[in-house]
């Protein structure tokens, strides 16, 4: 238990070990720890950012979905409207066509009737003329005259 050179030796050893520690031990462990700390912090950061992004994306997706649904509904409605319109138009057109055809047919019928009337009138007048001729030919005979008239009437 004597105090001797060991004291000095221990001081030198102490200095050397501290120097070694400063030079070769402390920096790598310190760096590794700090880097890991940074890495973990970054990782946590990235995770929270990703979560936020995910939330945003979900919101966006929802919105897009809603918009597209609305659009689809609108398109469907338009299509319905359009088809109704088309049906109405077609109906209207058909009705008009029918009316037109009916009108045509009526005019045709009228023309036909007129023509027939004209013809009839012609025939009647001709018959009248013929009757008149016949009457004039045998005007003396009253009986005959009456007969003729009857005949004429029959012929009418």
């Amino acid at each position: 238990m004597n105090i001797n050179m060991t004291l000095i030796g221990q001081m030198i050893a102490f200095a050397i070990f501290v120097w070694f520690c400063i030079k070769y031990v402390w920096p790598p462990i310190n760096n590794a720890l700090h880097e890991r700390q940074k890495k973990i912090a970054d990782g946590l950061d990235a995770a929270s950012r990703a979560a936020r992004d995910l939330e945003l994306a979900e919101q966006q997706a929802e919105e897009t979905l809603r918009e597209s649904k609305e659009q689809a509904a609108e398109i469907l409605e338009n299509a319905h409207k359009r088809s109704n319109q088309m049906i109405d138009e077609a109906r209207e057109q058909a009705r008009q066509e029918g009316e037109r055809m009916i009108a045509n047919a009526k005019t045709e019928i009228d023309q036909e009737v007129n023509r027939a009337k004209e013809e009839l009138r012609g025939q009647v007048s001709r018959l009248a003329i013929v009757g008149a001729e016949r009457i004039l030919e045998s005007s003396i005979d009253e009986k005959q005259h009456a007969k003729l008239v009857d005949k004429l009437a029959e012929e009418l």
């Binding site: 070990f17 031990v25 790598p28």
Partner: peptide, 19 residues
Amino acid sequence: MGVLFIWLFRKVGKAATTG
């Protein structure tokens, strides 16, 4: 013991991964 300390910590420090 000092050398053991330096060796052990140096070894770990050199191989230290950030993972």
